[in-house]
Amino acid sequence: MKLGVYNAILHDRPLGEALKVIADLGLDGIEINSGGFLPPVHIQELDEIAADPAVAKKYLAQFERTGVSIAGLNCNGNPLHPNPEIGAKHAEDLRRSIRAAAALGQDRVVTMSGLPGGEPGATRPNWIVNAWNSAALDVLDYQWEIAAAFWSEIDQLAKDHGVKVALELHPQNVVFNARDARKLIELTGATNVGVELDASHLFWQQADPVAVVRDLGPLIFHAAAKDIRINPEHARLNGVLDNGFRRLSPDEPRTNLGGSEWANEWPQDSSWDFVALGKGHDSAYWAEFIAALYEIDPGMCLNIEHEDTELGPIEGLEVAAAVLKDAWGSYQGTNPEATRE
């Protein structure tokens, strides 16, 4: 198993410095953002890598003797967005990432399933959270038809390139839980589309990531080590479906998500928060999580994603890495033959 870091938190420094940070943490993998919501800071030459083996070789040379290797590409975005300025771009970023991954000898690309509009002619996505009425099921039928067509195409492209695409079970996507993951595979017959098991989004939905791993089994292709903390004083009033976000103004630092869409400020009285590993679930839980993943695929990549606003980038990675390595040590104590490779 490879333990690493999703590199978005290290976009403020060159690739070489990011690799040193990861190596100093005692980790050995880097999941590299390759487009979608975020720019591909550490792999800007995607098309050249896919087209020219010499360029791919030169890119890979940057990892030699660092102790860190590529642990997947990540182009999280909304490839089904009805606005082509966003949807078409994110979809093409995914195709480019698949081709580049193959050229680099990588076989995992992480993304999201995407979310269309609710009806023909829509310009904004429409997330059905609770389909208790017939109109909501009509929307879902329309969205699943779009999703099935797109992911059938992507499955074939991935198969042609020897790559597997792992979908993060993330809110505001057609696929955000175990049932939806199985439904997509049933609708498409996909063999090269599966799941990236990011525990954090399952936690706040009150699902158990370990149970989901054991249920989906070989449909899990990749994993993220990311924790959350429920804030009971707010959750008991507002539940976990909390829309207390604030729109950021153009003169404030904010992240563009494509076109005219921007990330909002997290609620100040949030029902739950992303936190570093250990602040929501202890290392014993993460050891159980590792055990479940290892049983599926000993070569699984498990990468830290840091979004804890209470900790700085390096501090947060240090906290998470210590918990992850402790969890690995606990698991290895029960399975001495387990290796990190």
Rank of each mutant, 00 (worst) to 15 (best):
L216E: 01
L27H: 02
A91G: 09
L167C: 07
L302K: 03
A88T: 11
S134V: 11
G16Y: 00
G299V: 07
L94V: 02
S97D: 01
T111M: 06
D180G: 11
F289W: 12
T339E: 15
D141L: 14
S270K: 15
L241Q: 10
G194N: 05
E318I: 05
G217H: 11
P14Y: 02
D93K: 07
E31K: 03
I228G: 07
V212Q: 04
G312C: 05
H170V: 12
R236M: 14
W132N: 11
I154C: 05
A338Y: 01
E186W: 12
I154R: 01
E48G: 10
N231A: 10
D215H: 11
R182L: 09
E92S: 07
S330L: 13
A178S: 11
A199N: 05
D138T: 13
T339W: 09
V213M: 08
L115K: 03
D227A: 12
H170M: 15
A102Q: 02
G194T: 05
V139D: 11
A327I: 02
H201Q: 07
M1D: 00
S271R: 03
L80A: 02
A207H: 15
K226Q: 12
G299I: 07
T309L: 13
G26A: 08
E252H: 03
H201P: 02
D198Q: 13
E64D: 14
G244I: 04
R340H: 04
L137M: 11
Q332T: 06
Y331A: 06
Q106F: 08
E288T: 14
Q206M: 13
I86P: 00
E337W: 09
V174N: 04
V41I: 15
E288Q: 15
D155H: 07
P120L: 12
T309P: 05
A136V: 08
G316K: 06
G258L: 09
I9S: 05
G162V: 13
A327T: 00
I220L: 08
K89M: 14
N231G: 04
Q62W: 03
N7E: 04
A320V: 00
G312M: 08
G105I: 04
A158H: 02
N256P: 14
I86C: 05
L80Y: 01
E307K: 04
V41R: 03
L73I: 00
H306K: 10
L27N: 01
D269L: 10
E17I: 06
G329W: 07
G36A: 08
N78Y: 07
A100G: 02
D28C: 08
P250M: 13
A8P: 02
N78R: 10
P82W: 03
F289T: 00
D273R: 07
S260Q: 14
R65C: 07
N177W: 06
D138K: 14
V55D: 02
A71I: 05
L216M: 09
N76Y: 03
N177F: 00
Y59S: 05
L38W: 13
G299S: 12
S152Q: 15
A284Y: 13
G26T: 14
W262R: 03
L10A: 07
L94K: 03
G105S: 10
L184I: 04
